[in-house]
């Protein structure tokens, strides 16, 4: 315990200083949320690259939580869905249902190229389409996978902080 305490003291704060706010104009929905965005992550068929980056975005270094974003366990608790990967046939209906399950006002963030336009999987037989073909998308974050900074930036557009 003491060792852990010492380590905490030695390490100090690892979160990088916050970059300037990227928010130009928040959507009406985002404004309604008032700086608190709970996120439900949906993997619609991703290769897990984006998941790793989302994980880092919520890790101590990028610390997306400081801007008021938080991952939650149920779409009922969520304000926004973070969708990764091309939407596979099997995940199209679940994605739609997850979207249904979120109480309004709600947002969808498509993370990664696959989510935006199916990326390298475009036209594959198991792919139903991009996220926007299934549910309305509010924010898209490009990259394969997108860097954590990009993800944080995308989320900050929702929280407005």
């Amino acid at each position: 315990m003491l060792g852990l305490l010492r380590k905490i003291r030695r390490t100090g704060r690892v979160a990088e200083p916050a970059p300037p706010s990227p928010v130009v104009d928040r959507s009406a929905v985002a404004a309604e949320l008032g700086g608190s965005v709970q996120i439900r992550h949906v993997d619609a068929g991703s290769c897990n690259g984006c998941e790793v980056e989302i994980g880092s975005a919520f890790g101590p270094v990028y610390d997306a939580e400081r801007y008021g974003a938080r991952l939650v366990a149920s779409p009922r608790h969520a304000d926004a869905l973070v969708v990764t990967g091309p939407v596979t046939r099997n995940m199209a209906e679940p994605l739609r249902r997850t979207y249904e399950a979120v109480p309004g006002p709600k947002l969808v963030v498509a993370v990664g190229d696959c989510a935006r336009n199916c990326g390298v999987f475009a036209g594959a037989y198991g792919v139903a389409g991009a996220v926007r073909d299934v549910v309305p998308v509010d924010v898209e974050i490009a990259g394969c996978p997108p860097r954590p900074e990009a993800i944080v930036e995308g989320l900050r557009k929702l929280t407005g902080r």
Binding site: S74, M91, P94, R97, E100, A101, P103, G104
Partner: peptide, 14 residues
């Protein structure tokens, strides 16, 4: 003042 909405039970989308 929002209307209460009936929804499916959260069945993980399955």
């Amino acid at each position: 003042r929002r209307a209460r909405r009936a929804a499916r039970l959260w069945d993980c989308g399955g």
